[in-house]
Design a protein around this nucleic acid. Structure first.
Lengths: 124, 124
DNA sequence: CTGACACCTGGAGTGCGCTCCAGGTCAACT
DNA sequence: AGTTGACCTGGAGCGCACTCCAGGTGTCAG
């Protein structure tokens, strides 16, 4: 069973140490192990969970929804259907976000092309 | 020359009235016309500019960068090259954002599939 | 053993992008 | 003329997601 120091976990998860502590405080991260001296020791499971949190954050899920998801996870197997529903809803939101981003990226490209035409009107 | 009331502009731009006022205050929106009574009157040009602002906001450009862009625009034609550069840089950032979002959406779909497999392990 | 540095806690502070409020004014309708 | 509702200003407040700080403790290389 591989265990990670806080510094290693920062490295691997991409979250800052402060953020990891914050997540623990608000219940996004539960019963992280400690050394006798009180330092955190993260497990592979913790890293996996952090990977999921990163995915949800990167796709714009608000913290309070992630907390609800964490709460469901803590309640065990009978909440799997609820979790699927939550993730499914989020997935729809992400698809909308992707579509908007793609569309606006198109507008941006058009605008750039327009400016370029002004810069070099006779170059085809 | 078509002119729009604040309410119409809210409708068409998708920005709230408070946001329009805020944008004017910080210099993102300049010399909006007024009635003799002091009410704002937006022009087609204003609407076009707001459309560009919306594109930039939707693609995650920070306000202060938009202000820089607005400032360049105010300075006239000799800043077109600078504006192209700014937009080009932003476009690269948007592409990175799209890539990340797509990748994480993939992870999300995998996670959902994984949960579904737990829910109905014998259904293929 | 000592020094350096990583890490701990609770709580305050920050930056962003709005959003709301109080106290008024203007304009259109009846 | 009166009423209603959209709009005005300056400034304060808010929600989010961290981030920083002070003051203290653990760990480990040399």
């Amino acid at each position: 069973m591989i265990r990670y120091t806080p510094a290693e976990t920062v490295q691997r998860s991409g979250f800052s140490l402060d953020t990891l502590r914050y997540y623990e405080r608000i219940g996004l991260l539960e019963h992280v192990d400690r050394t006798t001296g009180g330092r955190r020791v993260f497990s592979d499971d913790d890293l996996g969970w952090l990977g999921l949190l990163r995915c949800l954050r990167d796709t714009g899920m608000p913290i309070n929804v992630m907390c609800r998801f964490a709460e469901l996870t803590r309640q065990g197997d009978e909440t799997v259907a609820d979790r699927v529903e939550l993730l499914e809803q989020h997935s729809v939101a992400v698809e909308a976000q992707l579509e908007l981003l793609l569309r606006q990226h198109g507008h941006l490209r058009e605008k750039i092309a327009h400016y370029r035409a002004i810069l070099a009107p006779d170059v085809c």
